[in-house]
Design a protein around this nucleic acid. Structure first.
Length: 455
RNA sequence: CGGGGCGUGGCGCAGCCUGGUAGCGCACCUGGUUUGGGACCAGGGGGUCGGAGGUUCGAAUCCUCUCGCCCCGACCA
């Protein structure tokens, strides 16, 4: 993409409405614009990140055996009366009427809908286990939206729902999602720790929140330091027993403030390993049994011919919130530092002197070649001065910068800079191409180890 | 909803107290000089001062009502 044809309104000063760093940076980098309180337009730069995150989430859901569908944003009030949540949900639910005066609502979640769909579509024990998910916009009319996209009213969320015949099987489905989450967050470049959490109004017996640590986190969390160093499992066989895979995370103390047990924390975790910090919740897994299946009569016929109410769980990932959360966890004074896996573009190509024949030619050639190799490149072909281009590129945080000015190009070289480490080297034009040939396009690493991948 | 604050060009702000017909920085356009970490000079475009009503010869400024937004709290992915 050429900057001259892109839409990326960057701001030198952050609008006064923004308080926390991720919100300020998203506004400044031209990723979002507020439409009204807690509701945002996603500009091209922001949308690319949002889509990249969704893509990784989908891939890991699919690997874990979940099946994607898409449910509507607008739901009927009657559906919610059936589960008796219409009155219970309160003012957070945005209620609307259609032209016939029928009561509708903008879905804050989808348990009712999915339960109806599955109930009507599944009749035999042979239809389970089944885990369905979708990635869809939701609306919760928060009393006070804040922190930009981290606590908006309208938000994009992946939610999955599992259906099983027995509690034991439901636990297995739960485990699959748990492991899929470990992998998903790792691929997003995050250290997310599963922590015991309150089951809340959705109810149920087993619940973990996946938390990333950040000063701007909304809640107080407590955990064992070693949990920060665990690596997500690779090549998972989702048909196997996953309890051993999960064990490293479950055997060490980790809890949110709601369920925190100070005595246990003190006795189970050595003093120098005790972490108490602020955390941002980026995902949650729940096992709630027959809470919705019972009232909504979601049951199948078992092998014994008897009608059996199904056992369920639900599993959410806050996709739009993750954009803000990742920035909170990955930025510096100059701007955003995108993990490679979700960067809107992998490479920023800076032409320091547009109009200089040699520099233009070198940039055009690099741009064409890199793109034909499948690399995503944002080519700054604008007439802006060098200093401004550097500042903008650092702000938007693309993992790699290729800097081409008349001086270096005359010597047949350009500069390759790593945004995360700041490390920069002069390379020949073909050397730069080679570097990206050997580099996987969707590596989840933040890419500081350039030397090792270079050879 | 309780408490606090703010709405003036795209962004950041001044002007308001003490009414006199709107200003600064950045961004934008034109020309010139510059050109590797947010240059300089000159010229220019853009604002019904959130909205409605009122007071007044005259309102960004005073009064009333209203809408929006932000921060703290209760609530939440």
């Amino acid at each position: 993409m050429r900057i001259s044809r892109f839409f990326m309104p960057v701001l030198r000063d952050a609008p006064s409405e923004a308080e926390i760093v991720s919100h300020r940076l998203m506004l400044r980098a031209g990723m979002i614009r507020q439409s009204s309180s807690g509701i945002y337009s996603w500009l091209p730069m922001g949308l690319k990140v949002l889509n990249n995150i969704s893509q990784i989430v989908r891939e890991e859901q699919d690997k874990a055996g979940a099946v994607e569908l898409l449910m509507p944003t607008i739901q009927s009030a009657d559906l919610w009366r059936e589960s008796e949540r219409y009155e219970a949900y309160g003012a957070e639910m945005l209620r609307i009427k259609d032209r016939h005066g029928r009561e509708m609502l903008y879905g804050p979640t989808n348990e009712e809908l999915i339960t109806t769909l599955f109930r009507d579509g599944a009749h035999s024990y042979r239809d389970v286990p089944c885990t369905l998910y979708h990635v869809q916009w939701k609306f919760r009319d928060e009393i006070r939206p804040r922190f930009g996209v981290m606590r908006g009213r309208e938000f994009l969320m992946k939610d999955a729902y599992s259906f099983d015949l027995t509690k034991e099987d439901a636990k297995k489905s739960f485990n699959r999602m748990f492991v899929a989450y470990l992998r998903t967050f790792e691929r997003l470049g995050l250290t997310a720790i599963p922590m015991q959490a309150e089951t809340g109004p959705i109810g149920g017996d087993l619940s973990y929140e996946f938390i990333i640590l950040a000063k701007t986190g909304e809640s107080e969390v407590f955990c064992h330091k070693d949990l920060l160093d665990l690596k997500a499992p690779e090549n998972v066989n989702y048909d196997s027993d996953l309890e051993p895979v999960m064990a490293p995370w479950l055997e060490k103390y980790a809890a949110t403030e709601d369920v925190h047990d100070a005595d246990r924390f003190a006795s189970e975790v050595p003093r120098d390993k005790q972490i108490s910090a602020r955390g941002i919740e980026v995902g949650q897994v729940f096992l709630f049994g027959d809470k919705y299946n019972e009232p909504m009569k979601c049951a199948v016929q078992g092998p014994d011919g008897k009608l059996t109410t199904l056992q369920s769980g639900s599993y959410g990932i806050g996709v739009s919130r993750l954009v803000g959360a990742i920035i909170e966890a990955s930025h510096d004074e100059a701007g955003i530092i995108w993990p490679q896996s979700i960067a809107p573009f992998k490479i920023g190509l800076l032409n320091l002197k547009v109009g200089d024949k040699d520099t233009d030619a070198a940039c055009e050639s690099l741009y064409e070649q890199l793109q034909s190799m499948g690399q995503t490149v944002l080519y700054d072909d604008s007439k802006e001065r060098a200093g401004g281009k550097f500042k903008t590129m650092d702000l938007i945080g693309l993992p790699w910068q290729i800097i081409a000015g008349p001086r270096s190009v005359k010597a047949g070289k350009v500069e390759l800079k790593n945004r995360a480490s700041g490390e920069a080297t002069e390379l020949g034009l073909d050397e730069v191409i080679n570097f990206f040939v050997t580099k996987s396009t969707d590596s989840p690493s933040t890419g500081t180890g350039r030397k090792s991948t270079e050879s």
